[in-house]
Amino acid sequence: MFNALEFEAIWLTLRLAATVTLLLLLISTPIAWWLARTNSVFKAPVAALVALPLVLPPTVLGFYLLLAMGPEGPVGRLTESLGIGLLPFSFWGLVIGSMFYSLPFVVQPIQNAMEAIGDRPLEVAATLRASAWDRFFTVVLPLSKPGFVTAAVLGFAHTVGEFGLVLMIGGNIAGETRVVSVAIYDHVEAMEYAQAHGLSAVMVLFSFVVLLALYVFQRNRNSAGLTYGR
């Protein structure tokens, strides 16, 4: 049904989404925890920055990242001086771009779940001799588990679905940056509608199954802070 190039695109897409999701879960956890607990004046600006990719056209995000990671940009100079080379049009460049792009989809469900815990379980843990770190690992993380599941699913699915940003900073290199959405665009450009249909159908099916699984999960948990996307 699919040729080798198409399988390569599917495999690349999954690899990209898995990498991005994993890294985002690590980065988003402290951000979400800080946003959930702080009374700082910086809370609103940071929350707005995190949410920015929700409203910006991916091309805008991609454009600035391209400049920053390019040979004249600050990130580009840094990566070159570290001997890593330039990130645009590489897999890791895509990973970084996608992390910005999917950040709100991972931070917000975790933040919602952490806010829903409230003060009480933390106070209880403190009266049971649990230090701040102990409380975080034994109370906050387990109680926000549903938020992490939602965050992982949304982060993964959203990364699979990106297109504009990939085109801006990834281009169209087989096995390196040509993900499924770009491959579909290629097929359409080349008037290969049958192949475009095949990949598109896989995307529709995948997205539906993922969202269905998520909503069934949320319904069964039926707890606060999980109704993301409804």
Binding site: R120, E123, T127, R129
Partner: peptide, 11 residues
């Protein structure tokens, strides 16, 4: 801090 006080607390 709370976690260093030898208390038990029932809410």
């Amino acid at each position: 801090p709370v976690h260093k006080r030898p208390i038990g607390y029932v809410f």
